[in-house]
């Protein structure tokens, strides 16, 4: 489903920050945001994602030492 980057075998640490200040460190090779979300069971349509404070799209490849903030879009208008 996803194209695998050449350096796929190198496992790296990535920090996932969820809205409720709950942070998780995962071991993961560089991959598109969409794939990371898929693996932690999150529908990309229900969140917005930023890296080091900048909004990134679902096909952005994230890698080692990246701090990825996953912000849930709350219902309500």
């Amino acid at each position: 489903m996803f194209k695998k980057p050449a350096h796929e075998t190198i496992s790296q640490r990535m920090k996932l920050i969820f809205s409720d200040q709950d942070e998780r460190i995962i071991e993961h090779s560089p991959a598109p945001v969409e794939q990371i979300l898929f693996e932690v069971g999150i529908n990309p349509l229900e969140v917005i994602v930023s890296r080091n404070g900048n909004l990134i799209s679902e096909d952005t490849v994230v890698g080692s030492e990246d701090a990825i903030r996953i912000i849930r879009i709350a219902h309500g208008g």
Binding site: L45, L55, I73, A74, G76
Partner: peptide, 23 residues
């Protein structure tokens, strides 16, 4: 909904607000 969230983020108008307790 996602486009609205991104739009607000880009306009610096995104606030993390509580969700209605009755949802």
């Amino acid at each position: 909904e996602k486009e609205i969230a991104v739009y607000l983020m880009l306009q610096n108008e995104w606030n993390e607000l509580p969700e209605c307790p009755y949802t």
